[in-house]
Every structure is written in structure tokens, then in C-alpha cells.
Design a protein around this nucleic acid. Structure first.
Lengths: 279, 279
DNA sequence: CTTGACTTTATCCTTGGTATAAACATCATA
DNA sequence: TATGATGTTTATACCAAGGATAAAGTCAAG
């Protein structure tokens, strides 16, 4: 092998890159072969050109486009390179952040699928101890209990727009619920104009609220229009057993199967009311 | 606004997505409008279809392709969804890992640019304290000091192939050097058949070696063919001052400017020999 | 000289959209 | 009912960063 006169195939194999990619880089003037045969068009590379290829691959791994890389080469200016690398560094950090949020969302949903498997689906109340959680709240104009599913969906759209508008990661949007405040609940008023999303522990903002851990009386269902009915069943149970409501009512959407229904959420939700057993 | 009969523009605005993207999803059978006017071709959406759009965006954020998402929808099987999500979870982790490595490489190189600014370029020896480092070693067939730049480049290609072959991140490939073992050095034998790369502290493998922190006598240069000369200058200095060599000789490539030279690495390297001042 | 391996160009395909133009539809107002 | 301003349709091309394929030409070894 003549290291000063490598064919495109040899150069490609040495650098673990495809011949097509080398031709592309030639066309884009990113890496021009050391010598091109005028008659046959054959490209011949010098092994020293591998250094440039290394640089291209390094810059590509940092997320630069080929156009930016060409700029780095043509500007001939190490200061510009440093500037671009600093920009890439921030881009990498943003991307890692985005992926971490996405990862958390996927994990949360996978956990919810597991919950779905074991939670009672017969509409009977049960107890659950639930740990500390953090939620991001958003207040709407109307009472959810006056809305049909389209109205509910519309309110979610307004929340989504709010998130985009305020640069809040959309990944949170996949684990949603609604609140009835304790004061309304105690008056038997099924009134809720607040929707919430669970957020990471480390996320703080004025609209993030901490939900204390505790014992919850819960009920699950997949019937959107039965929420009032299920809520009343819980409240009746609470009255009959003389439990004391010690916090807000949460209706958490555990799972959503828009895949398997046309036009409508097929959701499975868990209503949870924190209670104390009075001594 | 009729929530049961949204035009494509209304649907797009509600969901913060472009009309083109909605048309694309229609063409791909990812999200078909609830009703399409036969005469005009106008698409009309039901707001409940937003749920499906949410699902698409969520799955997209987890890294699925549109084709995979379509499969999720058409399979109608929550178990398959969980399987795919678990696959995505691993993909996300791999990508975060890759980005972290890339980030470290960029940081390392930016630091090296800073070093380049301040290091003496006049070929004079100087002392420097260098902290603990980890290197990944690779042994070649020949002695670097018998090679010209093409031969050196060829050995780097073999290293690169080794990395690819053994699934070692290529991001390490951007901070490279060679070793002369202490025993050879003490016999004035400029012999090196080991090339190394600096690796992260937490990376362990049989080929990873720890370099102790300590005081180094160093010399910098950008002349590939002057390494022997520079090495000898250091060795002479050490003899004259009666220093004691207490470890291996490292020749670290601080910077590489393949951008700014044709066919040849324009490299800036720092030779470092760990020494003790004899009392 | 032949044969097989290699290389050339040209062209199309991929993904997840964006952009544009020309034609047509809808809607509010006059 | 007319009109102008939007809104929507299709078709087509474009982007990055290559991958796939085909038909034709080239190289090197026996």
C-alpha cells in the first residue's frame, strides 16, 4: 500500500468511512483528494489527509453541520473555531437536557403502565400511601365539571400553548391531572379550574407546588363522564367512615390510549383524596 | 370556533404544529382528519384528535421515527408499546452517553487551546506540575522514532480501527500521545511503540493506566521531526542538573491544525518527563 | 489478454419536515 | 350579490448527510 497514493477504497477502509461519504466531502470541498487523475477521474489520497478527516469527524460529533465545518476550515482562524466550539458546547448541554426530560417522561409512563396492570378497575375505593410529589399548576377560565370531553381537550390545548409560550418542557405534558381544592371539596362542590402536571423534584418556579406525602383514598376508572359519580362515591365513603379530608382532590390521568380509539381519549384515571382516620 | 370541525389552520395553531406537518401526517396515515370534504379536499379535524397528536409528539420526543409511531398505533397493543418504549429508553441513554463523551472532548480541546496560548513555544524546557490522569494504551508493531509522518499517521489509523473494533468512543481520539517507558529512557533509547489517549476518570478497562500526578520537566514544539532533538535536550538537562527520572516519558499532542495545512498535521506537542530533584 | 476487483458518474431514496406557486374555497363586509 | 382578504389545496422543489443502485470505464495480477 502506497501511503502517498491511496485509492478511495483504501482511504475509506483506513478511516472507517464510506466511499460515498469521501466523494460527498470532495464535492463539498471539505476534503479534496491530494491528486485526481485528469483522464479517469480516479481520486488518490495522501494518508496525511486523514488528519483532516479526524477533525471533520470530531467536529461532526460535537454536532456541527458540514457547512459549519467548512467554515472552520476556510476561516483559517483558531479563535473562530473556539467560538464555534463554545456554541456547540451549549448546544450539547441543551440536547442532553432535552433527552433527560424525555427519559424521565418515558420512565414515568412505563411506571404508569405497570400501575395500570395492577390497579383495581372495578370502580371500588382503595387506600394508597403516596410519597411527596411536585406539580406545576395552570388555572383555566372554566370549571372542568361543566365541560364535555371536547371542552376538556380545548383546555388542555390552552395549557399546551402556555407551556410553549413559557418555555416549559413539553415532556411534562404526558402526565396530567386536575385538582379540586379542599375547601370546595368540603362543601361538596365539584369545582375545578386548575390542571396540573407532575414535574421533577429539582424544578422550581412560582407555579410549582409540593404535594405532601400521605394516605389517599383512591378510585380508578376509564369513563370520562363518570368522574363526578366516582368522586361522590369517594366522598360518601369518607362521610360514612368519618374520615377527615386533609388536602386537595387530585384526578391523575394514569394512562392515555389515543392510539386505540378514534376521536376520543381513552383514558384511565385515578382519583385521590388525602384523608386522616379520625381517632 | 366549532371544536368538532376545526380547519387545518385552527388545528395547527391549537397544537403548535405547522399545517404542512398536519398534511404530512395525513399522507402518512398517522393522523387522518375526522372529515375531509370530498369536493374541496378541505380537511376538518375534531379537537379530540389532539390526543393522538400529543401521543405522536411524545413518542417523537422519545426518539421514535414516524414509521415506528405508526406501528404503535396500528398494532393496537399496549405491550408492544411498552417494549418499544423500553428500547427507546436504552437509545436515549446511549445518546446521552455519546453526547457526554463529545462534551468532554470539546471541553478538553478548548482547554488545550488555552494551554497553547500560554505555553512557551521557543523550545525551552520548563517545569510543570501535572495532576493525575488516565490513559488508554495501544501497542503498535513499530518504533515511532523510526517512522516518518506518513508512518505515524498510518499507526494512528490502526489505532482508530482498533477503537471502532472494540467499541471505544472515538471522541477520545482527539487527545493523543506516545509513551517512552522509563526503562528505555534511562538507557537513552528513544523507543516507543505505544500510543495513548486520555480517557475519563471513571473509565476502567485492562488497557487503562493511571499516570500519577507530579512534577514534570517539559518542552513544547510544533516540529514533528524535532521530537528526538527535543527529547535529547530534556535528557541532557536532566543529566546536567542531576534530576532523577521517576516515570514514563509522554509526548502529548496539545493541538492539531489539520485545517490550516495541506496534507500534513500541523501539530503542537508537549513532551513531559516526570522528575525528582535529588536531595 | 482476460478476469475480477475497483472506481466513476448519475440518479433516486431516505427522514421530517419547510417553502413556494398557482389555483381554488370560504368568510366578512359592503 | 359582489368583492377582497384570508385560508386551503395540490404539486413541486429543497434541506442535511449520506445510502443504494446501475451502467460504464479502469486497474492490476496471472
Amino acid at each position: 500500500m502506497d501511503l502517498q497514493r491511496l485509492t478511495i477504497g483504501q482511504m475509506a477502509r483506513l478511516n472507517h468511512i464510506s466511499e460515498q461519504t469521501l466523494r460527498l466531502y470532495d464535492r463539498n470541498h471539505l476534503l479534496t483528494p491530494a491528486y485526481t487523475d485528469e483522464m479517469t477521474g480516479y481520486r488518490y489520497y495522501h494518508i496525511g489527509q486523514s488528519a483532516r478527516l479526524d477533525m471533520i469527524q470530531y467536529l461532526k460529533a460535537s454536532g456541527m453541520t458540514l457547512k459549519q465545518i467548512k467554515e472552520v476550515f476556510s476561516s483559517d482562524n483558531p479563535v473562530k473555531l473556539q467560538k464555534l466550539l463554545n456554541i456547540q458546547l451549549r448546544a450539547i448541554d441543551r440536547e442532553i437536557g432535552r433527552l433527560s426530560k424525555a427519559r424521565a417522561a418515558v420512565t414515568r409512563n412505563l411506571e404508569n403502565y405497570q400501575k395500570y396492570e395492577v390497579l383495581p378497575k372495578n370502580g371500588n375505593p382503595f387506600f394508597e400511601f403516596i410519597g411527596k410529589r411536585q406539580i406545576y399548576r395552570y388555572t383555566c377560565d372554566e370549571n372542568f365539571f361543566d365541560q364535555d370531553d371536547a371542552g376538556y381537550e380545548y383546555m388542555l390545548r390552552k395549557l399546551k400553548q402556555h407551556l410553549v409560550h413559557n418555555d416549559i418542557p413539553l415532556s411534562y405534558f404526558s402526565n396530567i391531572g386536575t385538582i379540586i381544592r379542599k375547601s370546595n371539596l368540603e362543601n361538596n362542590a365539584l369545582f375545578s379550574n386548575e390542571v396540573f402536571m407532575f414535574v421533577d423534584d429539582n424544578d422550581v418556579s412560582p407555579d410549582v407546588e409540593t404535594i405532601a406525602s400521605g394516605m389517599y383514598l383512591c378510585i380508578c376508572s376509564d369513563d370520562f363522564y363518570a368522574e363526578s359519580e366516582n368522586a361522590n362515591r369517594l366522598l360518601t365513603e369518607i362521610r360514612q367512615r368519618s374520615y377527615r379530608i386533609i388536602g386537595d382532590y387530585l384526578c391523575e390521568v394514569i394512562m392515555d390510549f389515543p392510539a386505540f380509539e378514534f376521536n376520543k381519549r381513552k383514558m384511565f384515571y385515578k382519583i385521590q383524596i388525602p384523608v386522616a382516620m379520625i381517632s
